[in-house]
Simulated assay, not measured.
Amino acid sequence: MNPSRQRPLAIGPLRAFEAVARHLSFRAAAEELHLTQSAISRQIRSLEEEVGCQLLLRGTRHVELSSHGSLLLGTVRGVLDRLDTTVRQIRQSQGRKVVNVTTFASFASLWLLPRLEAFHRLHPDMDIRVSAHDQIIDLDDSEMDLALRYGPTNLLPPDAQRLFGEILTPVASPWLLQQAQSGQLPPLRQASDLALHTLAEEDDQRPSGVYVSWRRWLAEQGQKDLQPRRWMYLNFTYQQVQAALSGQAIALARLALVSEPLQRKELLEPFGPKARMDAPSSYWLVMSRQGRQRPEALGFARWVQEQAALTRHAIGDGLTGDEEEGLGGD
């Protein structure tokens, strides 16, 4: 047996292989790694000799993975990702403390970011890195310390900590309501009056979208066949809220995400609290394995829980004694 095939694989050739496999180009891999194409080629040949098979199929103008190369790539990517994450954590530990948070865009825009200034006043030596997107990532296979998520209980991990529930309510700008009261716009005193107004609706085709839709709210108000003057379909919750703030439409808002604009009278509930509607999902905090081991991440999680308690109070979302205990953190 070739003695070289018994040695551990060097990281350099593995990183070159991953880059070529990702780009399917020796030139692009060389530019990314700041090496020459010949250096990349030597590293790939060295790796193939050590593994004992061809990993890349070279054509005149193209590169593709062999079956063995595809098999190796899946492992190599995971190894390099974990290595890079560990190195970043070590570097961060030598400088400012950073807590990595993942959440969805509307929650970041409407709930988390407006509160971060208060957190930074309490912890000026700590940085918060927010990754906002709608894809759910595997926390324990990433560099994230915690996630702020949304969904029903059965789709969350057992150790998820409930922050607050989902309550929907119609909201409008004070300007729009003043115009309606003065007669310059159609009246807005009862649910049937919505036929004369524009309604901002989240363009969510998932089955769960029905629970936060105007159609469900209208049905509960005895107006299931009502058609508004105009529908305004929007991708994200924060866009609906912006449409309401600007007076362009009436939004069916997630109460937890607009509790502060309501307190500041930037938005108003035209039909009052009696028109609020519950939905089955809630907002949750989930810690990663690494986050549970980092004091700064645990401290940030406790602060989020404190802020969530204020939101629960503002929206009238009471928790049982057992749920309150579960919010105590590690």
Rank of each mutant, 00 (worst) to 15 (best):
Y211R: 09
L55N: 08
L33A: 01
L14D: 03
D193K: 04
S142N: 12
F107E: 06
R289F: 03
H123W: 14
T102I: 15
S93H: 13
L122W: 02
L155A: 13
E325T: 08
L146M: 12
L267C: 04
A243S: 15
L245E: 07
M232D: 09
R276W: 03
G222S: 07
Q248S: 15
P186E: 06
L168Q: 12
H62Q: 11
E49M: 10
G78P: 02
R27V: 14
A219P: 07
H197Q: 05
M1C: 04
E323H: 00
E18N: 07
F271Q: 01
Q179G: 07
D125N: 12
T102G: 03
F17P: 01
L80R: 11
T85V: 11
Q94F: 14
P114R: 06
C53Q: 11
R88L: 11
S41H: 12
R5K: 11
P295Q: 10
R289N: 10
E269I: 05
V171T: 09
G318H: 10
S109M: 09
Q307H: 07
V20S: 01
R215M: 05
H123E: 14
T153R: 13
S70A: 13
V212C: 10
R82I: 00
A172H: 03
R58P: 00
S106M: 04
R27L: 14
E323K: 00
Q221E: 12
Q240W: 00
H34P: 00
L188D: 03
A108E: 11
R149A: 14
A301V: 04
E32V: 02
A256Y: 01
W214C: 05
F236C: 01
V130E: 03
L55Y: 06
N235G: 08
Q223R: 07
Q239H: 07
L177Y: 04
P187E: 04
E324D: 06
I44V: 13
L73N: 03
R189N: 10
Q43S: 11
Q205K: 09
I90V: 13
P186T: 06
L176T: 08
A191S: 12
F104C: 06
L298G: 05
A10K: 14
D278R: 14
A243Y: 04
L319R: 04
S182D: 15
K97M: 10
R254G: 05
A172L: 03
A132I: 04
Q305E: 12
R61Y: 13
I136P: 10
H197A: 05
R215C: 02
S109K: 13
L71D: 12
A160G: 02
G95P: 00
S41E: 09
L47V: 02
I137E: 14
P273F: 07
R58E: 11
Q135C: 06
L116A: 11
E266W: 04
L9Q: 08
L112R: 07
W214E: 05
P207I: 07
L310A: 14
K224T: 10
G12N: 10
R15M: 14
H120V: 06
G209I: 03
F17D: 02
R27T: 14
